[in-house]
Design a binder for these strands. Structure first.
Lengths: 228, 228
DNA sequence: CGCCGAGTTGACCATGTTCAAGGTGGGTGG
DNA sequence: CCACCCACCTTGAACATGGTCAACTCGGCG
């Protein structure tokens, strides 16, 4: 995990951008404390783990992150896959309830909670953005619950593909950053069932699988019907 | 749904208590706008419904509220049961994503979002409390996801009983405010499966069912083992 | 080439759902 | 006060779906 102070110009259209707020802060306060730093994490490496102190929260700049929980019996529950622009690790408790790992090589911005809280006291935009982040996570978690309650396995996989397509591309070919196991742990299925669903979709001509990590959605309407 | 301006003294140990903040606000601003009002809702009645404008959010003062979503095919997903002191209906979108209904007769405090947002601009405590509420909902939603992923039906029902016990009583007899159908919709099971699980627990001597809505937990350890 | 991790496929099995038939208890009206 | 009703709950039997276990394939890399 290599770190460097964040100083590049942001291309994010996001309202907050805590970094710019930071600059204001530094000017105003004359403080030299760093609010956000850019961090590079290689694929498969941990960003934070369950139980560790929740000193920071994070925003993905590039790459894909999975946030997950390890159950007692060795199973794993994936709470979310995060892509560029999304915030994760924001928690009320002093310790993280979940773990986060890089699925691909990632660059992420690491924000110091305490510093951001200070900023929030002065800057209305920072404040609103923070709440916005929390609400977005909440919204996602609720949608995830709905997903887990879906009846069929096919229904879940179809909904996942559509969701991922909507978030990562405007085209019809979706690049899956994650393994089948990751998808299974996210949907509450086994790897075999995910595999079978995808194979079935392919047989039905609803998708094509040009390579193991690429899915071409040939018939979104059919998928949407499945996802009900 | 009868309403009255909230003027009673709060017994809640909660940090915020938006009401008192309101008073400060009114003094400071000379505003006559009402931030929170007490509302009484009879059992079975709706508090807000999916798609309606999210003008207010709410805090339970007494009674039990269910927050749920109706799926296309007539099924229903219950996202949470809320008891005294808990906040619900706090959302980022302009419209509610979920519905809320009173399970028992309830008194709830209804807060006007816009007014609270204004307050948050001035009052640090209000601000922190708002974020706290959002985070608590987030935390609950994540736990609910975990619950839905549990393997067995017995596991889910046991976990539910223990959780409800922990929140509503210090004793061993739990009063269920909700129907079996509610429990089923919360756990992602059918009413029959919930019923069978309870019957099984009773046969195993883990619980007693003195009446249909009362459950006496005879062996918490056994339940905790089941809930794994 | 052979290994290894990831993915696929098949057969069997366990679990929860579905459908259908009672049971129970609290409230209402005769 | 009793009988009836209705919503809620329980129970049983057949069935469907996804989990489990095991064998096999595929593709990349030393």
């Amino acid at each position: 995990m290599t770190t460097q102070t964040e100083f590049t110009k942001s291309s994010s259209p996001d309202a907050l951008d805590v970094r710019s707020a930071l600059m204001t802060d530094q000017k105003k306060m004359g403080s030299s404390q760093t609010v956000g730093v850019i961090v590079t994490v290689l694929a498969g490496h941990e960003i934070f783990c369950e139980g560790s102190d929740a000193i920071n929260f994070y925003k993905v700049k590039s790459g894909v992150v999975r946030v997950c929980k390890f159950l007692g019996d060795g199973r794993r529950q994936i709470e979310a896959f995060h892509i560029a622009g999304e915030v994760f690790g924001l928690e009320t408790a002093t310790q993280h309830q979940l773990s986060a790992e890089a699925i691909t090589d990632c660059t992420i911005i690491s924000y110091r909670r305490r510093s951001v809280d200070q900023l929030a006291g002065q800057d209305r935009a920072v404040r609103q953005q923070l709440l916005q982040y929390a609400m977005r996570s909440l919204s996602h978690a609720q949608e995830h619950s709905l997903m887990l309650r879906r009846r069929g396995a096919a229904e879940k996989v179809a909904a996942f593909l559509l969701n991922w397509q909507g978030r990562t591309t405007t085209g019809s070919t979706v690049r899956l950053a994650m393994t089948r196991q990751d998808i299974a742990d996210y949907l509450g299925l086994t790897i075999e069932t995910v595999s079978r669903s995808l194979s079935q979709f392919e047989r039905d001509g609803v998708i094509a699988l040009p390579s193991i990590r690429d899915v071409r959605l040939l018939n979104n309407d059919a998928l949407e019907d499945l996802a009900a």
